Simulated scan of single mutants.
Amino acid sequence: MFRSHRRLLTATSASLLVLGLTACGGGTTKDSADSTGGGATQPGASANPNAELKSGLKIAYLPKQLNNPYSDVETGGGKVAVGELKGEYKLVGPNDASASSQVSYINTLIQQQQDVIVVAANDPNAVCPSLNQARQAGIKVVSFDSDASKDCRDAFINQATTQGIGESLTKMASELAGGEGEIAILSATPNATNQNAWIDVMKKELAKPEYSKLKLVKTAYGNDDDQKSFQEAQGLLQSYPNLKVIVSPTTVGIAAASRYVSSSNYKGKVAITGLGLPNQMRQYVKDGTVKKFALWNPADIGYLAAFAGAALASGQITGAEGEKFKAGKLGEYTIGAAGEIVLGPPTEFTAENIDQFNF
């Protein structure tokens, strides 16, 4: 796993791999809204890097949806971190990834007076009013994996840089297509912040001379639902008979597309790549359906988010660029522009190395 944003993944990692973010206070309903716990946008707030981490912090995780394999790995890493911090871990969330499905959960977490809310936003704007209410109540907000709008969270835990992921996806697609031909994208939801950012980078990359022979014919949406993603993959292949590659930057989508192709006449003719969990993708790599795909460490994203939230709630950081904090086993991190904290670069998985990873 990633030991820090500068370290490589190791095969002996005891934790799961993948992707996380922040908050600001100022309210009067919580102890964390005092002079040691002010958020980045709170007037007069300042960081005290020597402040002691508070114990007993109530840290709640709100992923895009429950019972999603990727989200389960992320929040599992968060649970481990909250335990190390001697805090109280809570997991809540919707069963669907619709834009407004998270709002009611945020409102409940405010009533429960959590210290930190760690959220992977289904929509960057739909959650903002509730998140800002949380911040006004003194709750620190860390977004992870999929960012909320910058004015309604204190920090963002990013699995890898947006540019790096988009470039990696484009490069893999080009290699698998032999440098020319039709490709398609199978994304999550139309409003998913991270998916859209990666796709925007891909489109800019595809406009470069070295990718001029590749043609993006369509972006389809499986809504991070296994069956819908399966159907969308089927639809892409039926609609575009000359399609060479499906790029799916979502773990649900890449697994569903691989499952369809593996048992169809398209196996060996159409390549599948994107972002996936090694344990979900292993059988498709072994049977030749998938030649390569990539991912970062989801468990470490959730883990890093907990330590960022604790540092915010303890006043060690405010979310300002250049501030530093320690994240347990992952080491020290420095906050970048706009409160972004980058976990590390994605790793590419192939038949040669996939058995080295277990997550």
Rank of each mutant, 00 (worst) to 15 (best):
F2C: 10
R6P: 14
A11S: 15
S13Y: 00
C24R: 13
T28I: 14
T28W: 14
T29Q: 15
K30G: 15
D34F: 04
G38S: 12
G38I: 09
G44M: 07
A47F: 02
P49E: 12
N50Y: 00
L53I: 10
S55A: 14
S55D: 13
G56I: 03
G56C: 06
K58R: 08
I59V: 07
A60I: 06
L62R: 05
Q65E: 13
Q65M: 13
L66S: 10
N67E: 15
N68W: 05
Y70E: 01
Y70F: 12
G76M: 00
G77T: 09
E84R: 04
E88K: 15
K90E: 12
K90L: 12
A97W: 00
A99P: 06
Q102V: 01
Q102A: 06
V103A: 09
S104G: 09
N107T: 05
L109M: 10
L109I: 03
I110R: 03
I110F: 09
Q114L: 08
D115E: 02
D115G: 08
D115T: 08
V116K: 02
V116S: 10
I117N: 02
A121C: 04
D123F: 02
P124T: 08
N125W: 01
N125D: 10
C128T: 02
I139T: 13
V142S: 06
S146V: 02
S146T: 07
S149G: 12
S149L: 14
K150N: 13
D151A: 09
A155W: 11
A155V: 10
A155L: 15
I157W: 07
T162M: 13
Q163I: 14
G164M: 03
E167D: 12
S168I: 14
S168L: 15
K171N: 11
M172F: 03
A173W: 07
G178T: 09
G178Y: 07
G179K: 04
I183C: 01
A184M: 07
S187H: 11
P190C: 04
A192P: 00
T193F: 07
D200Q: 01
M202T: 10
K208T: 04
K208F: 01
E210A: 01
E210M: 09
S212N: 13
K213V: 03
L216I: 06
T219Q: 11
Y221H: 11
G222I: 08
D224H: 09
D225A: 10
Q227S: 14
K228N: 12
K228E: 14
Q231T: 11
Q231S: 12
A233Q: 02
Y240A: 08
N242R: 02
N242S: 10
V247Q: 05
S248Q: 08
P249V: 10
A255R: 11
A257W: 00
S263V: 14
S264Q: 08
Y266F: 15
K269Q: 13
Q280A: 10
Q280N: 12
Q283K: 14
K286D: 13
V290R: 09
K292S: 15
F293D: 07
F293H: 04
L295E: 03
W296Y: 10
W296G: 08
I301Y: 15
L304K: 05
G309K: 00
A311E: 08
G315F: 11
T318L: 09
G319K: 04
G319Y: 02
K324I: 06
K324Y: 01
A327P: 01
L330I: 00
T334E: 04
P345I: 03
P346H: 02
T350C: 03
T350K: 06
Q356Y: 10
Q356W: 10
